[in-house]
Amino acid sequence: MTTVLVVDDEIEMRKLVELHLHQAGHHVLHADNGEDAIELVQSSEVDLILLDVMMPGMSGFEVCREIRTFSPIPIIFLTALDAKTDLVKGLKLGGDDYVIKPFTTIELIARIDAIFRRVGINSSNENHRVGIIEHDLVGRQTLVNNEKIQLTLKEYELLHIFINNEGKAFSREQLLERIWGIDYEGGTRTVDTHIKTLRLKLGEQAGKYIETVWGIGYRFEVME
């Protein structure tokens, strides 16, 4: 199991990221400041760091600079900054990638998996087959009965979450937060609309894998 260190001074963001990482099969360590992050890297087996840029005390850039003096561990910046000069600065300091807040679960996990593939670490099962559905994370394609179907990005992300959490019920609010982000201002009807189109594209048999759980939301389960 791979270990990811999450460094962010915002506790809610840290908890949210940790939840997603746990569900993707990663062991998680965390720190709310740069000094503690550096100590953890020096004292623990860490495979990758998710590093917030804007923190009190040492900034993420300063933490990255310090870590690069003794370790080549992959670093992904978590940042609300959209100025290209800031992002370029982070990469020049030794960062491997960046994710701009707000981000979706699938984007974050995909970037982590991409870096692990680059350094030769097998972090997760990237090709899932459930029932008559084959879901390929690397190729970003979905097949039903060996025939490729065209999904929008949001439909793909919904299916990815369902397949990775088979049998688990999700509320509309949980799905909205995971896929559209915590800052999305639309209502939960957006989820219902995308579920409807996803079921249609999966077809009569596979569409039934997505069950409506009355009073809660939706669950993905293959009953065959």
Rank of each mutant, 00 (worst) to 15 (best):
E10W: 08
A31H: 10
H128R: 07
E224I: 07
S71R: 06
A83H: 11
E35Q: 13
G187E: 10
E107R: 11
H128M: 10
G207E: 02
K154P: 14
D32A: 09
L87V: 06
N127M: 08
V6N: 06
L48N: 01
T197N: 03
T104K: 12
G95I: 07
G187P: 00
L91V: 08
K15F: 02
F61K: 10
G60T: 02
D8R: 08
V119H: 03
Q42P: 00
V144F: 12
Q150G: 04
G186D: 11
E221H: 13
A37K: 10
D183T: 14
L143C: 02
T2P: 15
K101D: 11
L16W: 09
L108A: 01
L5D: 11
I121L: 15
L21Y: 12
G25C: 06
R14A: 10
E221Q: 15
G181R: 02
H22C: 06
R129A: 05
G34E: 13
D192I: 04
E224L: 04
R189K: 11
H20Q: 14
E134L: 07
N165E: 09
E12A: 15
R189N: 15
L200H: 10
V4E: 06
G94M: 00
F220V: 05
R118I: 04
D8I: 07
K15I: 08
I75Q: 01
I76E: 01
K168E: 11
D136P: 04
D52I: 08
L16Q: 13
L19K: 13
L19T: 15
N165D: 04
R68A: 05
H27L: 13
N33G: 12
L51E: 02
G120H: 03
G131D: 04
G207N: 02
I100H: 05
I112N: 01
L48Y: 07
V88E: 15
I179K: 02
K92F: 02
K15Y: 09
F70C: 11
E157M: 15
P102K: 10
L21C: 11
I161N: 09
G90F: 04
F70H: 12
Q141V: 07
E224V: 11
D136C: 01
I132N: 13
Q150A: 07
P56T: 10
H30R: 05
L202N: 03
D113P: 00
M13K: 09
M223P: 03
S171F: 00
L5E: 09
N146Y: 11
K168Q: 10
T197G: 05
R140N: 12
L87I: 06
R65I: 01
A169V: 15
T142R: 08
D86G: 01
K208P: 00
T85Q: 09
V6M: 07
F103A: 06
Y209K: 09
L16P: 06
